[in-house]
């Protein structure tokens, strides 16, 4: 698939100048001014919701509503920044707990997915056994089944396992991931077979080959899968909403969303503060790991 060919390339390498020789005419200047204008409009438009969220988190509810009309710089900037909202979410809403739950669940899902997927991908690519292709086919078939279709019976499964008040319910159903297996299978298959054979001659067991040859050579794929499964877990909403019935073990996304009800006017400042806390970590991760994120975005595009 053509789309996958950008895999692993840096975002900045993706920009390509189409060399065109043109005189510096008035038309060209107008065109570039127009282009810059579009760039500014796009950037401002995309970032506006975040800007409004971050800055409103430092306003009191009264200020948020007072500065909505007429529109002025105070709509987009707190004239008297206050930390009151953050105090409120931690003290009254116990957001610290939800944040911790999200961090633990995301880390658990991440490590579980990486371990299980890499073991299975190794057995599927580097070991010879009858039916391995068939098993892989069956695993990938499940990738076509949307979670939304199985959510009701899945809920019954976890309920019959008495997990609905157990922290495990947040991540255990998702750590065996067809996408993780698919992604690592691709990566493992790219390692030349000579590597294994050299190790085999030295008397290495399959597990030693896995640990000493394959894993060290597929680090970037492992990072990509880690990032991807961390984000899936961190941003998950529908499953924790349905499955986790103990509010003290609930994740941050559900906590933020269940404090607002449609058409109502709850404590806006506190919601902005909570949303800021839930959003900032992934935005920072994104900026730091943008290169890996490009790959993971393509993969989750495949996830559908």
């Amino acid at each position: 698939m053509a789309a996958l060919e950008v895999e692993g390339r840096d975002l900045d390498q993706m920009a390509r100048a189409v060399p065109r020789k043109q005189p510096r005419s008035l038309r060209r200047i107008v065109a570039s001014v127009f282009l810059v204008l579009i760039m500014i409009v796009v950037t401002v438009g995309m970032l506006l919701p975040y800007e409004w969220m971050f800055t409103s988190a430092f306003k009191t509810d009264g200020e948020i509503f007072r500065y909505a009309y007429p529109i002025s710089w105070k709509t987009f900037w707190p004239p008297n920044p206050t930390l009151e909202n953050f105090v409120k979410v931690f003290r009254d809403w116990k957001f610290g707990r939800n944040l911790m739950n999200s961090v633990i669940a995301a880390l658990a899902q991440m490590s579980g997915t990486v371990v299980i997927s890499s073991l299975a991908a190794f057995a599927l690519t580097r070991m010879k056994w009858k039916g391995s292709n068939l098993v892989f086919g069956i695993i990938m078939l499940v990738a076509l089944v949307p979670f939304e279709v199985i959510m009701v019976p899945l809920y019954v499964v976890v309920r019959s396992l008495r997990l609905t008040r157990n922290f495990l319910v947040l991540f255990v159903p998702w750590i065996a991931s067809p996408f993780g297996i698919f992604q690592l299978r691709q990566a493992f298959a790219e390692i030349p077979r000579d590597f294994d054979e050299a190790a085999l001659i030295e008397g290495a067991s399959p597990f030693q080959i896995f640990w000493n040859v394959i894993l060290p050579n597929t680090k970037s794929s492992l990072v990509t899968l880690s990032l991807m499964s961390f984000l899936w877990s961190w941003n998950a909403f529908m499953w924790p909403l349905i499955a986790m019935q103990d509010v003290t073990k609930q994740v941050i996304q559900v906590a933020i969303a269940t404090f607002t009800l449609p058409y109502q006017l709850p404590e806006w400042g506190a919601i902005f503060a909570g949303a800021t806390l839930g959003t900032l970590p992934v935005l920072i991760l994104f900026v730091l790991l943008q290169r890996y994120y490009v790959r993971s975005a393509l993969m989750s595009g495949l996830k559908g």
Partner: peptide, 27 residues
């Protein structure tokens, strides 16, 4: 296009894909 600052535009366009739909829907 190879223009100065295009990286910022790209980052801005990608940013919402990383943040949770639920929280963004709240906002």
């Amino acid at each position: 296009q190879a223009i100065k600052g295009i990286g910022i535009v790209r980052t801005a366009v990608f940013a919402p894909t990383v943040t949770a739909m639920s929280t963004m829907a709240v906002i």
